[in-house]
Design a protein around this nucleic acid. Structure first.
Length: 421
RNA sequence: GGAGAGAUGGCCGAGUGGACGAAGGCGCACGACUCGAAAUCGUGAAUCCCGAAAGGGAUCGGGGGUUCAAAUCCCUCUCUCUCCGCCA
């Protein structure tokens, strides 16, 4: 949620943000409803004031055992008026809330303007895709050959776009999870959380998936959603709380499976495990004060980057342009790994800062040592997303004779072996 | 799934229709005392909304109702605890 004061005082800031993102939203209509809403509040509150004065008068007269009928009658009339005004107000406020929930976050000033990935800006890492010295098999071929993946049977169990890891493949998946969680808890100071992955609609509204991404998520009975990312439970951990400043920044890491319908993606990336309905991810979430915010954000990016580096994968960091960022983000970096089999840059981490956007939706605030309670800054990043790392390892650590070398950092998790199969 | 009990400020806990945004305690911050601390005494402190401000309004788990007036009465939902049953 944007700061609603902007609607009234600086609507052009929002207008410009919408334009930069390429959003088509009837802002004037929203502003109009906001005005009606504010007027309604003022009106109702004035009436309530009148009624409260009359009620106090009644109470006083009662104590003196005097007649009150005249005042009671007047208060009754006002009460009826309040009721009808409140009904009107409720309708207006409801419409306004629905409309306002669709206003995206305002991009940070350092975010380049653009409409798609071609406008993203290279930040650091490998500039050009590295060349392979031999013909590298794509992960689905080598994965099947070495019996690490069984996508046919995954499809039999659950349909297309599901993964079934097998044998050493399953062991590698588990090793990666442990490696990532250990790295972030031991070296980067994050607290590990194992959250529920069925989350309430309130949670999904809080982080900004709802209402916009309703059709991208699996909705279960009882009004619960399978979480599309651990960002959802981790950011809602402190929903409706006021955190003492001295506890900030808070850092959390969680491994969870993630569930996505990927509804718009049919026909794209059909082969292999790049785009699936269920995948594993280790997620990092931080809460910070506005002053700490952007420093902590850069550190979060470094924490994710460290994971890629330690695995020895060729990567680059891109700064997303305004049109490529998600709804709630103020600034996003992607970490991309180049994989030799599929011959493309794969997004393995998306690191975003939301400033106070999520905090306003989820009511997450902090109490400064002195001064006013204010909303925290929230941010998150994958640390990392597993399937694409799995792809990159199978393809980049492939040997000409069809084996998979194990990166040094993973050896302790895989019986200290040199090769996977 | 069945039966019962409960939900009040940072925490504990009183309040049972009108002077209650809420006693008291703990904890917290500041001040006094002290060489310093403890103890003691004093003072302060909830959140949100409308408003340029003055000021006003709202909030006692959520929602609805009764009433001139609700923390307090009624309905409903959610959650927590206890007991019984069932089951990984």
């Amino acid at each position: 949620m944007i700061d609603l004061k902007l609607l009234k005082d600086q609507p052009d800031v929002i207008r410009q943000a919408l334009q930069r993102r390429g959003y088509d939203l009837d802002l004037d209509r929203i502003i109009q409803f906001d005005g009606k809403r504010r007027k309604g509040i003022t009106e109702i509150e004035q009436l309530k004031q009148e009624r409260n004065i009359l009620s106090a008068k009644v109470a006083e007269l009662r104590r003196q055992k005097k007649d009150t009928t005249q005042f009671v009658q007047k208060a009754k009339d006002i009460g009826r008026l309040i009721k009808t005004k409140e009904q009107d107000y409720r309708k207006i406020a409801e419409t306004f809330d629905e409309l306002a929930a669709w206003i995206p976050n305002i991009p940070h000033s350092s975010v380049p303007t653009g409409t798609g990935s071609e406008s993203n800006v290279y930040v650091r890492g490998m500039k050009d895709a590295p060349h392979a010295e031999f013909e590298v098999l794509p992960h689905w071929e080598i994965g099947a050959a070495l019996d690490l993946l069984d996508l046919r049977r995954a499809a039999k169990i659950s349909g297309s776009r599901f993964i079934l890891f097998k044998g050493k493949g399953a062991a590698l998946e588990r090793a990666l999870i442990n490696f990532f969680v250990d790295l972030h808890t031991r070296k980067h100071g994050y607290t590990e959380i194992a959250p529920p992955v069925l989350n309430s609609p309130d949670c999904l509204f809080g982080t900004g998936q709802l209402p916009k991404l309703e059709s991208d998520m699996y909705r279960c009975a009882e009004d619960l959603y399978l979480c599309p990312t651990a960002e959802v439970p981790l950011t809602n951990l402190h929903r409706d709380e006021i955190i003492p400043e001295k506890e900030l920044p808070l850092r959390y890491v969680a491994y969870t499976p993630c569930f996505r319908k990927e509804s718009g993606s049919y026909g794209k990336d059909v082969r292999g495990i790049k785009r699936v309905h269920q995948f594993d991810k280790v997620e990092l979430v931080k809460y910070a004060t506005p002053e700490q915010g952007y420093d902590e954000f850069e550190k979060l990016l470094c924490d994710a980057e460290t994971a890629v580096k330690l695995l020895g994968l060729p990567y680059r960091i891109m700064l997303l342009c305004s049109g490529d960022m998600t709804f709630a983000s103020a600034k996003t970096y992607d970490i991309e790994v180049f994989s030799q089999g599929v011959k493309e840059w794969l997004e393995v981490s998306s690191v975003s800062i939301y400033e106070q956007f999520q905090a306003r939706r989820a009511q997450i605030r902090y109490r400064p040592a002195q001064g006013q309670v204010d909303y925290v800054f929230t941010m998150n990043g994958s640390g990392l997303a597993l399937p694409r790392i799995f792809i990159a390892l199978l393809e980049n650590y492939q040997t000409p004779d069809g084996k998979i070398r194990i990166p040094d950092v993973l050896k302790p998790y895989l019986d200290n072996k040199e090769f996977l199969a």
